[in-house]
Structure formats: C-alpha cells, structure tokens
Design a protein around this nucleic acid. Structure first.
Length: 596
RNA sequence: GGUCCUGUAGCUCAACUGGAUAGAGCAACUGCCUUCUAAGCAGUAGGUUUCAGGUUCGAGUCCUGACAGGAUCACCA
C-alpha cells in the first residue's frame, strides 16, 4: 500500500479511537511538507477542529502521538499552527528506494488495453514548418509518449492537409515563374522551394490588388478579381475534376514538400504510425450529414445548405454542408473522426491543434455526442497557445517566420560553440562530439517549448537565444552526465551498488530523504501529465529533481565516505535519479548524454 | 458586441487543484574549483499575485464585476 494511504488509515483510526468519530480515510488527505519545516507529509488540522474539540496544537499532538505509536514508519512529528508535520523513519526511505529500484522501469504503469490516437503536426503542404509547428510536434510526440507510459496503446497520426487553395497558390506561382526549377537546381529543400513560390504568389497577388484598386475597384472585389487568384481558384476546380496536368503538378510539388518534411521530422526526432491525407478524406462525412438529418440533429435551410443547431447547447448554428452539396471543414472532420475509429477501434482521441480552433472542436465534439458516437465522450482537444515573436504574430505569407530547420540548426551551432568554449570535448571522437551538439541543441529547444503550460501562448525572442543554464534541457542533461560519471567511477573501483544491500545504514540526510521522496513521486507526475495532456508537468518535475540532485551532489561526498553502505546507498540513489531523468526526458523526446 | 483563453518579481515560468512566510531560472550583486564534471552549488536584492468586491478558519487558486492582452464568431481550412 502507498505510504500516504497507510498514514491516512492510521489517522482515521486515531479519529475513531481518540475522538470517537468515524471518518473514511479516503476523505482525508496529506500534502507534502513545505521545505522550511521538518517532515515529509503534512496533515492539515483546521477542517477537523470541530471533531477534535481542541486547539490545533492539542489536536495535532494527540494525532501525532497516535501515529508515532501505531504507524511503523512514522518516526517523529511536529505541530506548527494547524499543521501536523510527519517525519518518516530512515528505514522507510531506504526501503522505498529499494522498491523503486526493483521496478522494471521508473514510473511503470501496466497496459490498460485501451487505444488512444494522438493527431498532431498536420501540416499544410504549401510551405515549410516553422516555430509554431515545432511546438505542435514536440507537444504531440511528448503527449504520445506520456500516454503510452501511462499504459495506453498510442497511435500517432499525421493528417496531412495536402489539398486546397493554399497549395494551388504555390502551384500558380510555380507555373508562372518556376521555369521548371527543382530543389536540386535551387539548392533548397523541397518544402522551402514550394514555400518560396507561396511567398511569390502573395507578393504578386498584393500587387494585382493594388493595381485593380487604383483602377477604382473596391478592395473586396479586387481580392476576388485579381488574375492570379482567379487562376488559383480555377486550378482548385481542375484538381477536383482530376485534370491530369494539374494533378501532376500538384503531385510533383507535394512530393518535394514531403521529402523536405521528412527531413525535418527526422531532425526533430518525431514520428508517426499513421498518415491520413486530406485529398483522400475531404469527401468523407457526407454520409454523416444524411444520418444527422435523419436523426434530426441537423436541419436543411431553404437554399439546401445543412446546419447543426446547437443553440440549446450554448453554441450557435454551424454549417456542415454547403448549398451546392460540397463539404466544409466540419464535414471532413466528422468523417475522419469515424474513419479513425473504424481503422483502429480507438477508445480515445486527442487532437493537438492550436487554440484558434477551440470553437471548431467544441462544436465537432458536441455534434459527435449528439450523433451518439461511442467514442464521443473521449475526444480531447489539446489546445495550445501560439508562439509569438517580439514583433508580433508570425505570418508565412509575409516571410516573418522563424523557420524550423533554421532554428534547429542554430541551436545545434550554439551548442557546438558553447561546448567548445567550455572545453568539454576531450576524449570525444568527431562523431560523438557532433552527436552531443545535436542532443544539446535539440534538447534545449524542446525543453524550452515544452516546459510552459501548453495552453499559454508564449513569446520567443530570436535575439536572446535559448539558454543552456538554469531551467533548461541542458541543465538536466548535465545532471545526468554527472551521475553517469559517478556510476563509471563506482564500476571502476568495483563498488557493488546494485545489490540493494544497505545493511548497517543508519540515519539519512534530509536531501537524501527528499530525493527518495521525489523519485517515488514520478509515477504520480506521469499520471497527472497524462490526464492533463501536459508535458510541462514532467518538465517541471525533472527540473526540480535535477536541482535537488545537484544540491545533494554539492553537499554530500560519495567515494570519500568511510562506510561502504553509505557509498552504496548514495550511488544507488544517484543511479535511480539518472534512470528517472532518462525516462522522463524520453517522455519529452529528449536524449541524455553519458558525458558532456 | 457575444463566447472562450490568459494576466504572478524587470524578463521567462512554478505553486501538488482551497492551506503555512507565493517559489525557480534569466538579468544584477557576493562567495565556492588541490575532494565524484563550476552547463554546478550557496547567498543578497527583487511581490499590494492587474483592480474592486464576495464566499470561509484560510483565496494567486472559487464566485461577481471592472481593466488589459489574445483567439474566435465565414457556404475558408
């Protein structure tokens, strides 16, 4: 049984025996003791003063004494104001560490035989990935890892938005200005080449609008009448009709983009188990419209358009099918929701999509509920805030974006310079060194984007490059490397620390107890991160753990200790911290080095 | 304007879901490398938690109302 539960059971017994009052131990709760006080767990007395019919101090004394006498692991207690602080015996902590070491991996959860799909990335294929996509991809990948660690079977999905007016814009500009340029000729990655034409389209388009407005056209009309826009529209129609030339061009550009994306995904070290392409799925969902009409969830307006009336749900009316019978975003998403379920029999579905689509998903989930889909109550929108630049919002069309490839490269370069400055690559082969730079650069940027609560928008200042000190990925990686050095030394001198034999070990230091406590907390953090879909929980935890370990590292020597069992315990403790850091960082998608 | 999200140190973020004297990192200043890696550790300074009410033993956290920033309210995706 969990130590908290067992303490609470004893407290419940105390209430019964001391105050003749029955309470369920589930209704009681403990909290971690604040740093400045002695103890590990705190029981707050205020709510129970009516039962104990005494002052907080008296009540605390009574319960504390009862605990000390009746709970084998409670060594001591103190009462400050209305707070009963409980100290546990060293034997308890030693035993707890032994248990943690015996787990097959830190924070292990058994499989729960449920499938969850995590859809993330889902890029448009008309431009390269940028900083905002990095946040999306790292979040999606990390949440997938976290859910998987929590016992779910996870299917990582990328729904590629490969068709639509945006890609037609790149196509038109390429036809006009491209001269059959290829990525090789341009010396650009495929996605960057296509993105170049997307920007060129926008420049020319704006010029055309200006010209038309100069001729006296209103802005609204000019936007519609600009020749290139008309051509883009036409090319979309041709694409839908399957026009060979259009489709071939579309395929050519998209393939370039996919090659570029794959390279970037590889660099980001994210992956997918399932790809869906919107060109395959955009016609789905029309059957559901028919079904919805039959079930009277939808209604038809006079012009033939179909709507969902959610006004009694606190929402608006929402279009689900155009008057001309063509589908909209919502139609497709209803269709793909069913498709995902059909393909994989999923129990749960997570959409990693920016918060500008909050309303869309609220409506979608509501509709699926009204349509009585079995999975409808297990749909989650992991809504994350935009990444802003000091200059404001990023706009691909205007080229004011932080490019994903550039940023990653920049971080790796920074890591290289920084490491070389510190003179830390002695004994590294060139490959190992390069490996380390990537690990650190990528670790820095991933941690930077994941440590913040997903739903908050965040500011990224390219001028102040991402840090390597303090609350950063490299700080945690460094802590791991430090421990790795200790473990190497222990092996070297032949210290047996895996035997769990701490016989003779007496009092532990406060930092040691605190570390064991934090290690035992890891599984709760996984649970919390999984339930809240928030990698930030893990990131914050790892920082706190690393911080605490470094305190231990600075305060307590290991190999100069006279007693063998003290050495063994401290190395074991270090080992377990390293394993936990490694496991937690893996959840964030960050690798940790043995040396740095 | 309606709806939703956010507002905590100069800056970037925490605060275990209502508990103690609101904590970290960066930036500034001061110490600590002859002992397991100083990408570290210890310390100083920095706060009316946007504001005003309310709920209660107790509020950064809950409720109401302001204020500020953002998103969204398309037969776009």
């Amino acid at each position: 049984m969990d130590i908290q539960e067992s303490i609470l059971k004893t407290i419940a017994a105390a209430f019964e025996q001391l105050f003749n009052h029955k309470v369920e131990s589930e209704d009681l709760s403990l909290q971690p003791t604040r740093k400045e006080f002695e103890g590990s767990y705190t029981f707050v007395l205020f709510p129970y003063l009516k039962i104990t019919k005494g002052s907080p101090e008296q009540s605390g004394e009574k319960i504390g004494n009862f605990l000390k006498e009746n709970h084998p692991s409670v060594a001591d207690f103190n009462v400050v104001k209305g707070f009963l602080n409980i100290s546990l015996s060293s034997a308890f902590w030693i035993d707890l560490l032994t248990q943690l070491m015996a787990e097959k991996e830190p924070g292990y959860f058994p499989p729960r035989n449920q499938k969850v799909m995590v859809e993330y990335s889902s890029p448009n294929t008309n431009k390269p990935l940028h900083l905002g996509h990095l946040r999306n991809n790292f979040l999606g990948f990390s949440v997938s890892n976290i859910l998987s660690a929590y016992g779910y079977e996870v299917i990582k999905t990328n729904l590629v938005n490969d068709r639509g007016i945006h890609i037609c814009k790149s196509m038109v500009a390429y036809q006009k200005l491209g001269n059959n340029e290829t990525p090789e000729m341009a010396g650009l990655k495929g996605d960057h080449l296509v993105g170049k034409y997307y920007v060129l389209f926008d420049q020319e388009y704006k010029k055309q609008i200006k010209e038309l407005m100069a001729e006296g056209m209103t802005e609204e009309l000019a936007k519609k009448e600009a020749p290139w826009m008309k051509e883009a529209q036409e090319s979309l129609v041709k694409w839908e009709l399957g026009d060979e030339e259009t489709v071939n061009l579309w395929k050519k550009l998209n393939n370039w983009v996919y090659q570029g994306f794959n390279e970037t995904y590889k660099k980001m070290r994210v992956s997918f188990d399932q790809y869906y392409y919107e060109s395959d799925t955009y016609l789905l969902g029309k059957d559901i419209v028919t079904e919805g009409l039959e079930k009277k969830v939808f209604f038809k307006k006079e012009n033939g358009s179909v709507w969902a009336d959610l006004s009694n749900q606190g929402l608006d009316e929402k279009l689900v099918l155009r008057a001309d019978g063509t589908s909209v975003y919502m139609t497709q998403d209803m269709g793909t929701a069913d498709l995902k379920f059909k393909d994989h029999g999923i129990d749960k579905s997570v959409y990693v999509v920016g918060n500008e689509q909050d309303y869309h998903f609220e409506v979608l989930f509501k509709i699926m509920q009204l349509l009585e889909r079995p999975y409808a109550n297990n749909l989650y929108h992991l809504s994350y805030g935009m990444v802003d630049l000091p200059s404001g919002k990023m706009k691909s069309r205007e080229g004011t974006v932080v490019d994903a490839d550039d940023l990653i490269q920049e971080m790796v370069d920074t890591a290289r310079n920084h490491t070389q400055e510190l003179g830390k690559i002695e004994g590294f082969s060139p490959e190992e060194a390069e490996n380390l730079y990537e690990m650190l650069g990528l670790g820095a940027i991933k941690y930077f984007l994941l440590k913040v609560d997903p739903k908050k928008r965040m500011l990224f200042n390219p001028q102040e490059s991402i840090e390597f000190q303090g609350n950063t990925g490299p700080f945690i990686q460094y802590t791991h490397a430090r421990i790795a050095a200790i473990l190497r030394k222990a092996d070297q001198i032949g210290l047996d620390y895996s035997s769990n034999n701490f016989e003779g070990l007496e009092a532990l230091e406060a930092v040691e107890k605190q570390l064991v406590y934090m290690l035992s907390d890891y599984s709760k953090k996984i649970a919390m991160a999984a339930e809240e879909l928030s990698p930030a929980v893990i990131a914050q935890y790892l920082f706190d753990l690393a911080k605490e370990y470094n305190r231990f590292y600075a305060d307590l020597p290991i190999f100069s200790e006279a007693k063998n069992e003290v050495q063994a315990f401290r190395v074991s403790l270090s080992d377990q911290v390293a394993k936990t850091i490694n496991a937690g960082m893996k959840l964030l998608g960050i690798d940790v080095p043995q040396k740095m």
